[in-house]
Design a binder for these strands. Sequence first.
DNA 1: GAACACATGTAATTGGTTACATGATTCC
DNA 2: GGAATCATGTAACCAATTACATGTGTTC
Lengths: 179, 179
Amino acid sequence: MKKYNDTTYAILGILTTNCRSGYEIKQFIDNSLNHFWKISYGQIYPTLKKLEQEELATIQAASREGKPDRKEYFLTEKGKEVLKDWLEQPLKQLPIERNEVLLKLFFGRHQTEEQSLFLLEDYKQKLENLYQTYEGIEEGIARYNNNHSDAKYWLFTLDYGKRVTGAAIAWCDETIKEL
Amino acid sequence: MKKYNDTTYAILGILTTNCRSGYEIKQFIDNSLNHFWKISYGQIYPTLKKLEQEELATIQAASREGKPDRKEYFLTEKGKEVLKDWLEQPLKQLPIERNEVLLKLFFGRHQTEEQSLFLLEDYKQKLENLYQTYEGIEEGIARYNNNHSDAKYWLFTLDYGKRVTGAAIAWCDETIKEL
DNA sequence: GAACACATGTAATTGGTTACATGATTCC
DNA sequence: GGAATCATGTAACCAATTACATGTGTTC
C-alpha cells in the first residue's frame, strides 16, 4: 500500500469525526489534539487537495446560511482503508525528541552554576504551567463532557501529558538540588 | 544579535569540547547526545561551512599520521559570544511533541479494543527497551567514566530520559488496564 | 585486493511554518 | 464603516533526512 505522511493520516482520522472542512479540521486540532499534535493551514489545505487527487476523499461544495461557503470532504472507501491500515501499524521506532534545555545544561557545564539553575528554574516553571493547563482541561472534560464518546480518549491523552510532564518537573527539582 | 538555528548552536557547543572536525562532531553526538539530540552529516558539513563564512569559527587543515587529512574548526571570539548568548536564553516555549501512538489511540476509538491494546503493548515494549538502554549507559558511565568532567552532566540527561520514559511506561500500564 | 574505519561533501526530496492574499457574513 | 469570525488558499522560506559521490589509510 502506498505510503503517505503522518499529516495525511491525521487528517484522514479527523475526517472520521464530523469535521468536514479545512477550517473545521484546524479548530478540531487546536481544541483536541493540541498538546500532542498540531498542523498549520499551510499543511491542511494542500493535504486536502491531495486527498482528492489520490481519491482518498471526495469534495462537496456547501453553502450554509449565515456562513461563507465552504468545501466539505468525505472519506472514500479507499480513504477508509488507507486509514485503517495505518492505524494497525505499530510505531516503527521511538522518535528522538530534541530537548534544548538538556543541550544547554550539557554545554553549560563550564558556565556558572547560577546560569544552569536559572535555566532549570525557568524550565520547571513552564512545565508547571503546562501541568496546570492539563488539569484545567481535565476538569472541564469531567464537568461538561463526561458523556461525550471521545471523553475517555481525551482523558487518556491528558493523563499521558500529566505523567510525562510531572516526571520532567521531578527531574528539575532533583537536578536543581544536585547541581 | 543575529539568530542562528539550534543545529548551529549545538555545533558551536560541541566545538567547545575537543571535537574539531565534522566527523568527530558526528561521533560525539552519536555517543553523548544521542538520546535527546541528533544531527546528520547532511547538516553538519554545510553548517560548519557557514560557521566560517559567518566568522564564528576558523578552519585549519590538519594532516595526522596514519589518518586521512581533515579540517579542524576552532571557535572565534565572536563564535564564543554567540554561543554564550544562546546558553543564557531560557526556552521560548515548550515544544509540542508529536505522539503517533496517542494519535492512533485517539482515532482508534471506533476500532476494536484488541487493536488499541496491541498498539499500547508494543509501545510499552519499545519504551522498556529504551529504559534499559539508559540503564546500561548509566552503569557504563558509573563504572568507567566517573572521574570524567562530563560524567555528572551525562548522568543528568540520562536521569531525565529514565524519568520521562518511566512515566510513559506507567501510563501504558494504566491505560491498558482502563481500556 | 577486500573490508573497514576515517573523512568530506552535495543534491534531491520531504516536511513544516510563516507571511501573505483574498473574500463572505454578522454584529455593533 | 469597523471588528470579529468564518473560510480558502499560495509562496517563500527553513529544517532535516536520505541517498549519492568520492577519496585516504590500515589491516588482513
